[in-house]
Design a protein around this nucleic acid. Sequence first.
DNA 1: GGCGGTCTTCAGCTGTTCTTCAGCTCGGTG
DNA 2: CACCGAGCTGAAGAACAGCTGAAGACCGCC
Lengths: 221, 221
Amino acid sequence: MVARVLVVEDEDAIRAPLAAALRGAGHEVREAADGAGFEEVVDAYRPDLALLDVQLPGGRDGFALAAALRGRSDCAVLMVTARDAVDDRLRGFAAGADDYVVKPFATVEVLARVGAILRRLGRVPSTVQVGDLVVDEDARLAVRSGQALELTATEFKLLAYLAGHRGRILSKTQLLTQVWGYDEYDPNLVEVHVSALRRKLEQHGPRLIHTARGLGYVVRP
Amino acid sequence: MVARVLVVEDEDAIRAPLAAALRGAGHEVREAADGAGFEEVVDAYRPDLALLDVQLPGGRDGFALAAALRGRSDCAVLMVTARDAVDDRLRGFAAGADDYVVKPFATVEVLARVGAILRRLGRVPSTVQVGDLVVDEDARLAVRSGQALELTATEFKLLAYLAGHRGRILSKTQLLTQVWGYDEYDPNLVEVHVSALRRKLEQHGPRLIHTARGLGYVVRP
DNA sequence: GGCGGTCTTCAGCTGTTCTTCAGCTCGGTG
DNA sequence: CACCGAGCTGAAGAACAGCTGAAGACCGCC
């Protein structure tokens, strides 16, 4: 399973190879050296798993970050620490950690634990939810506040892709390649379909597909 | 990847061509002949990579400098020495060196190793923090004291560049080349955008972008 | 071949953002 | 304290990105 992983670790010598290994395993990785702007990054990036070092520079340690995650996201937590104290472990689980690794560790061990957590989470239901919109790719069904939407093939594909990457800015180029499989850049093609999608979506609620000027589009409740 | 490199080497005949080669590769280079004021330079310059000679005049050798880097910066370290003793190599790695080159060396070899280290680091975490401001270039997110800032494309680029070089005075010429890609000197263009940025930033706190009269601008908490 | 629906292209419109300009303020200097 | 250059900022309009209605191309179906 491919997941979005957020690695918060201050030591380059540990973070860099770890991130490389995770990328090698097909995951999408975001790195941070400390807890600065953690909430904002989580909201924007919506990781499936957070790998948190316990000891971090700055005001907040890994426990504080794990606590901040609760309620904000259904993201799993893997704590990393240099200390092998039992009370650390307990504090970690109390803060909502799903698992725990002790430094020094083998990169493969971490990879295995990440895989285990992601498998355990199961997930990958074919439906994505954004606010009051539910998109079920298997059933090819889009529902907004109880109302089924009548979408054309292209519109559905576009909406499914946007919703599947909610909270992230997707460029027109990216949409063109992912949804249309095109190489050439024709921004208007995307614009026309976004416009049509919006007309149908906004009959049942406020705007979900937002314009990020000069960058692309984002789906957000 | 373009990086800031700090070269500490006492022999002019080695340092000068090395610095020239690194500049030729697109890096920004700062040179020093010994370890005097090392910490201050690191804090002010925030190098991505330090090239440290082991044998240095004055009280401190390359190992001492490498040790001083740890905890102070997430900068990578490449040690340079005339001695090819195994215990030197071990001491170097123990002190946190990422790689090691032995004199006499070919300049291209050093360039290759610098490239390898920087690739391995995989561009340092994308978020920069200055006081209560956090700028995440990947997520294209600027947050000040918990409030997301609504910035236009140019404003964001400018802020990201300024924040990424916090504590350093950046001339208007430099900003024009780096942010706009312009050649001609139009100071007012920069001034107008700095003015707009300040208006948005200073709604949530004190001044961060300071004017260095006759020199340019600095970002500082 | 004709028909209905969908996709793509086109062109005009709108609102935003960038750049230029002009007049002002500020700080240093004699 | 007056002057001068550097920097600041409000306003105007040029340039640009994005939106959308409409027309034509395309495709499958009868």
